[in-house]
Write a protein that binds this DNA or RNA. Structure first.
Lengths: 95, 95
DNA sequence: ATATTTTGGTTTATAATATAAACTACTTTA
DNA sequence: TAAAGTAGTTTATATTATAAACCAAAATAT
């Protein structure tokens, strides 16, 4: 009847992150923080989880003298997102 | 950017329950259990939460000599579901 | 008749999760 | 050079989901 929803994507913040990354292809920590309206701590944790799952890649560098964290969605992440959306559609198909 | 997702509906099992109830208008505990592939304990807890939120109403009676729990979605539940779906669409809109 | 299993659940304990608070390290500004 | 700001990370806490354990009655087997 219903397919399982990938628990890694079935989280408001992680889904928001993925949604953004899919449309922009690369985003800075501060950009994601602002767009998702999240705290830095929460964002940091959720980015790590997405990264650990291989859904995004995280690159740490410097912009001038300040640390810069740049995130990119991976192929695997795009695939997982698409599958999540398809699974979700079974749930939200309205009569 | 992203609207909040109603945490009561942003749960695989509760979303499945609501999805079913919206399409059938009334369903028995055992029907929901089978369709959602959930354990009785988990289903019982989640039905209570939806009921406490006013999203569904639960009627307890007997079918012959056996207990019968019948669930119906409320107007408020339908509204919440629709709002959830609309909010969700912001997240899953693909490029 | 009575022991065993099944049905239809509820309650409770546990494991996982999300989230914010507290912290670090460095930089800019006063 | 002290205070405030930036860009994060780590850790503690509160919430949540979930299953395990339980209960009462009914059906079935012995």
């Amino acid at each position: 009847m219903f397919s399982d929803l990938d628990p890694l994507l079935h989280s408001q913040l992680r889904l928001g992150i993925m949604s953004l990354l899919i449309s922009v292809e690369s985003a800075e920590f501060t950009f994601l923080k602002e767009k998702t309206n999240s705290t830095a701590g929460n964002l940091s944790v959720q980015l790590d989880k997405l990264s650990a799952a291989g859904y995004i890649s995280i690159e740490k560098s410097f912009k001038g003298k300040k640390p810069l964290t740049t995130c990119t969605v991976t192929k695997q992440g795009i695939k997982a997102f698409e599958e999540y959306v398809n699974a979700l559609k079974q749930y939200i198909k309205q009569p």
